[in-house]
Design a binder for these strands. Structure first.
Lengths: 250, 250
DNA sequence: ACCATAGTATGGTCTGACCATATTCCCTCA
DNA sequence: TGAGGGAATATGGTCAGACCATACTATGGT
């Protein structure tokens, strides 16, 4: 009797997760729908409430359920979809374990923001949020205000790309680097250069200039994180790197 | 007495996670180090074992700890770093909730694989794994064998980019699309076209041709997922799209 | 030296209880 | 009749204690 696979019995909470996933698929549950209470779920699935709770912790960590205490229509577990929160936790912990370097995170963010800007320019949908954030940034006086609208600006770019997955990735990457972003702003002293970058990005996107938007984003992020990225110039953009001329577009 | 913030008392398991994170940061814990047992941890942090277990489930979900039962040096909780597993769960659940579309996942994968290939070409490190996978793919006879080495090929590209974060993202995206990849191979009937794509990608990377590698990857994925992506041609690559000529490079 | 067995520490699971919170119900009182 | 205020109740959050399955470790007999 040899040749046994390491059986790895599935744990009770894993079974609970699988059952909930099955219900989502079969019953067509979606965001906003509610799950049975922990006690009821435990009884239905023939497991203890502890196991149900461990499953809920997992689903909550992955950003698909949210629990409210109390009583009434808003109490209990509710299906949500917040992948960005889960990604933020993921990055924070793996950065803390020193199994991801800052350079890797910066490079990934560079990739995503360039892609988002290019796509926003290529098939840009609603750009009003982008313009509004830019105007508010212009009008801001304090550093806190600036950072707030700066975030709104970059989020607007990501959302204009029309991809919720890359948007979530961008949000979490930005979240992980927030502490360094604050330091970068203070280091630069003033925000004139950053503002010029933003206007350059905005002009390229509204002009539908995908390559120019990507290049402007790259220049912007390299200014914000000097010396961290390992990729000052890699793919796209021909051997000349004269993206400055794109400023006049739009 | 007004103006109270909704206090949102931190839950016990959240406190446990925070304490473990603090230990990781302060004591410099890293991958391979072990955590105290659940009972010991509960006693130290003055919480119940249930709360410790819920915290462990969260950390396990995020891919930073792994638990083994039994006794001995290998038993107990051990720090790991497997972000790709966590990302796979994340994608699977959010796809199931219909809050992410297949097109978004395919587009994200296209972004990452193009980026990885371009970076592998630009500062390519060790490309032996890439070449080996390609040769094994050539020699494979069954579809299963082909898919296996196809995966190894794409993983080698991601790893050659030198970024563990984007590699993890690529792995999880690929994992989410695996079922569709199998169908695509069957739909195409033979693998000649895919093999030609692979050789094209390989040649561009070893030649250091970043733009060519990115273009070859794009063509390859568009062949594998026809009609799914929303971005058949966006940024980079000039108005001509004649990447076929790059075949002769290398 | 070897092997079988008891001991023990680990995570996995269950039970049942209690708490804090928030809604719902209903009774009292104006 | 209306409004106010408690009681009932359902929810998640927490805890204590028990038992199981597993896998290493020590012990003792051969």
């Amino acid at each position: 009797m040899s040749g046994w696979q390491p059986v790895r019995r599935t744990r009770a909470f894993e079974d609970v997760i699988a059952q909930i996933e099955r219900r989502i698929a079969d019953d067509g549950l979606t965001v906003g729908d509610r799950l049975p209470g922990e006690r009821q779920l435990a009884e239905q699935l023939r497991v203890s409430r502890s196991s149900v709770r461990e499953a809920m912790r997992v689903l909550e960590t992955l950003g698909v359920v949210s629990s409210q205490v109390g009583r009434g229509p808003d109490a209990g577990a509710c299906l949500i979809s917040r992948p960005a929160d889960a990604l933020s936790d993921l990055l924070r912990l793996h950065l803390g374990l020193s199994n991801l370097s800052l350079a890797e995170v910066v490079d990934a963010r560079l990739m995503i923001e360039k892609w988002s800007a290019a796509h926003a320019a290529a098939h840009g949908a609603d750009l009003s949020a982008l313009t509004a954030a830019l105007e508010r940034m212009d009008a801001s006086t304090t550093a806190e205000e600036f950072v707030e609208h700066d975030t709104a600006f970059h989020v607007a770019i990501a959302e204009a790309s029309g991809n919720r997955l890359t948007t979530a990735m961008m949000l979490s990457l930005r979240d992980s680097l927030r502490r360094y972003a604050v330091g970068a702003v203070e280091r630069l002293g003033d925000t004139a250069g950053l503002m010029a970058d933003h206007h350059r990005i905005h002009r390229a996107i509204v002009a539908g200039d995908a390559a120019g938007a990507a290049a402007a984003v790259e220049a912007h992020l390299l200014r914000a994180y000097p010396g961290i990225s390992r990729s000052p110039r890699t793919e796209e953009e021909g051997p000349d790197g004269q993206h400055g001329r794109l400023d006049r577009v739009g």
